[in-house]
């Protein structure tokens, strides 16, 4: 018994010893755990801090309009919601640092009319409504006839803009002349003022009036079109914003159109995608403008119809020969 108690007492003592130990151990372990937790937390926090502040983490690479890659802090980001106000603002301002020009090589035009259909498709026009049209030209009885595509000349001194009483038609910094169908009152002064007959009036309800209902009006596309207002060639400003060639230029199968930037002294052919110096192209091919004597300073150049690449069936009557 005593043996037992003797046996038991150390056991008991052991037990008590064990229990004090365990309390201490508990605190010790807790301390250890706490230290580990604190250290881990600190490590995670410092890691997070490092990630937050490390150079390049909060920056995003962005390509600017003049083709430079820059880094922009994420905080400075602003999502562009395409709404009417935004479309109007960007449409009014135009693209900075550009001066768009078109060169039309009359020697190559074979009246494929792909430019016309591409344009009408983009701007929701009827087949008889033209932003661009190919005219049959013949200077005199004994000279060869030729086809001449005629878009808006996007004059630097535009008579249409001067006569508009409501600031609906305007010039942009990149040289493009646009019309805002939401402002236009349909007075048609601009049609009377334009020496190139580049404008059309919507006498009837536009082709896709029903389908276009509800889409925000894009001043760079003139869609949706509006009855009782003016519409005209826009140099496909919406495509230029994306760095793409205009609808007509890229639709031409015969390499008639060159389009580019006068500031960069370069034009790109819409068919072959070859790029040329604008100044050289105009000099070598004797480029000219339509009615420069009016002082309108057009942004469209023509290359003369030399070495026509096609035959009219009847040179005497070009209209019959088409």
């Amino acid at each position: 018994m005593s043996q037992n108690s003797k046996d038991a007492s150390p056991d008991h003592g052991n037990l008590e010893h064990g229990s004090t130990n365990s309390r201490r151990d508990f605190f010790k372990n807790f301390g250890l755990f706490g230290a580990v937790a604190a250290a881990g937390g600190a490590a995670i926090y410092s890691g997070y801090n490092y990630e937050e502040t490390k150079p390049g983490a909060n920056f995003v690479r962005v390509l600017t309009a003049d083709n430079r890659i820059i880094e922009v802090p994420k905080e400075g980001f602003k999502d562009i919601k395409v709404d009417l106000n935004q479309l109007q603002k960007q449409g009014r301002e135009g693209l900075k640092g550009h001066r768009f020009v078109m060169v039309i090589d009359l020697a190559k035009c074979r009246n494929a009319r792909k430019c016309i259909t591409a344009c009408q498709g983009a701007h929701h026009l009827r087949p008889h409504e033209y932003h661009i049209n190919t005219l049959v030209m013949q200077e005199s009885e004994h000279t060869a006839p030729y086809f001449m595509p005629k878009p808006c000349q996007h004059c630097d001194n535009p008579p249409c803009v001067a006569v508009c009483p409501v600031d609906a038609t305007f010039k942009r910094q990149d040289g493009i002349v646009l019309i805002d169908n939401e402002r236009c009152i349909g007075c048609r002064f601009c049609i009377a003022a334009c020496p190139y007959s580049a404008r059309l009036f919507h006498w009837e309800e536009p082709l896709m009036a029903e389908a276009d209902k509800g889409t925000p009006y894009n001043v760079e596309l003139n869609v949706p079109q509006r009855k009782g207002t003016i519409s005209k060639c826009l140099f496909s400003s919406d495509r230029l914003r994306e760095g793409k060639l205009p609808y007509c230029v890229s639709a031409c199968p015969n390499g008639v159109y060159y389009f580019g930037d006068e500031n960069q002294d370069s034009v790109t052919n819409g068919t072959t995608k070859e790029t040329f110096r604008l100044s050289e192209l105009l000099k070598v091919n004797a480029g000219y403008q339509l009615m420069p004597e009016l002082g309108t300073k057009p942004r469209v150049y023509y290359l003369p119809a030399k070495n026509r690449l096609f035959e009219f069936k009847d040179d005497k009557d070009p209209v019959k020969s088409i």
Binding site: N157, D167, G175
Partner: peptide, 15 residues
């Protein structure tokens, strides 16, 4: 090349 915007000069443009 730093040409001014084509809208920079004053002109009789209704506004």
């Amino acid at each position: 090349t730093n040409r001014p915007a084509l809208t920079a000069p004053r002109a009789m443009w209704g506004v």
